[in-house]
Amino acid sequence: MKFLLQFARLIDALSEAVGRAAIWLVLAAVLVSAGNAIVRKTFDISSNAWLEIQWYLFAAIFLLGAAFTMLRQGHVKIDVISGRFSKRTQIKIEIFGIVCFLFPFVYQVIRLVWPLVVQAWTTGEMSENAGGLIRWPVYALIPAGFLLLGLQGLSELIKRIAFLQGLCPDPTHSAQTKTAEEELAEEIRKHQVADEVVEMVEAAEEQIAGESRKGGLG
């Protein structure tokens, strides 16, 4: 089990690294989207390629960030029933879910999507939109993202079994103390990005927080 826990820590480190890299895709998507809007409104010019880049970036954020979200215990859980049980029983329910639902789901998605990736690669499939992009990179994000998710699921399974044996702390406890927007702003500051970009991210963070408060009042 000690060896398995070390393996789980390696998977966690991989998910953390990919997730932190994917954070920058959020900034890229914001800049591309803003640039598209400005050019379209100012010069009445539009490009399908740049529009599709936005979709590709969104797909990459969602798929490559899935494992990172699982690592941070950020996936939505419906615990109306399981919340009434003891922690050990809750952990056993999660083990059952990982083994009987997550792993088969990951396997089926990869099995079904991989032939489409190969076909798009060999044929050089392009978007049907005028000036659109090549398709195989965004197709390849699906098996890549689900492979990372499956690996993180394996890590979570190992940690939950170890918890039942008293070998590790509660794996369901989220270590995340900052929002995604706060982490992105922090990463930007670390890399000394222009102040204007930092202000843009902070403004977006304040807007999201304001909308959340309005939603809570509603």
Rank of each mutant, 00 (worst) to 15 (best):
V198D: 13
K2V: 05
Q192A: 09
A13Q: 14
L63P: 15
A185V: 11
T177P: 05
Q165L: 14
T89R: 14
V197L: 08
L157N: 03
V99W: 12
I81K: 10
S46L: 02
Q165K: 13
C100G: 10
F58Q: 05
A37Q: 01
I78H: 00
G145V: 09
N129C: 05
V138E: 00
G216P: 07
I23R: 15
V106K: 02
V109Q: 13
K41W: 02
D170W: 09
E182K: 14
T69L: 04
A204R: 05
L133R: 11
L64K: 08
G65N: 01
L116V: 05
Y139T: 03
I81P: 01
R88S: 10
Q165G: 12
Q207H: 07
F58S: 11
Q176S: 12
A140I: 01
A29D: 14
F7H: 13
L151P: 04
K190I: 00
V30S: 03
A175D: 13
E183H: 00
V198F: 12
W136L: 06
K92F: 08
L63A: 13
E183L: 01
I45R: 01
W55L: 09
E196M: 08
I142T: 11
G216H: 12
E128P: 03
E202T: 12
L184V: 02
F85D: 14
T122V: 12
V109H: 11
I93Y: 12
I134T: 11
L217M: 14
K41G: 00
L57E: 07
L31E: 01
P143A: 02
K214Q: 09
L27M: 13
F103G: 07
T69M: 02
I93H: 14
E206R: 06
L184H: 03
V193A: 15
G216K: 08
G166I: 08
I38Y: 00
V117L: 09
A66E: 10
V26T: 07
F62C: 10
V117Q: 06
A185D: 08
A144R: 09
R20P: 07
T122I: 09
L141R: 07
I158K: 10
M1H: 11
L147D: 07
A204N: 00
D79L: 02
L14F: 09
M126K: 05
L167K: 15
F3H: 09
L151V: 00
Q119W: 15
V113E: 06
A203C: 03
L154I: 09
A67G: 06
L164M: 14
I23N: 06
R135E: 00
C168A: 12
V193P: 08
D195L: 10
E94V: 08
A8Q: 15
L151S: 10
R9G: 10
V138A: 07
E156Q: 01
G131T: 04
A162M: 00
E125D: 02
S47G: 05
L184T: 00
L31V: 11
D170A: 06
E156M: 05
N129S: 13
I53W: 13
S82T: 13
G153W: 06
E94P: 08
A180W: 12
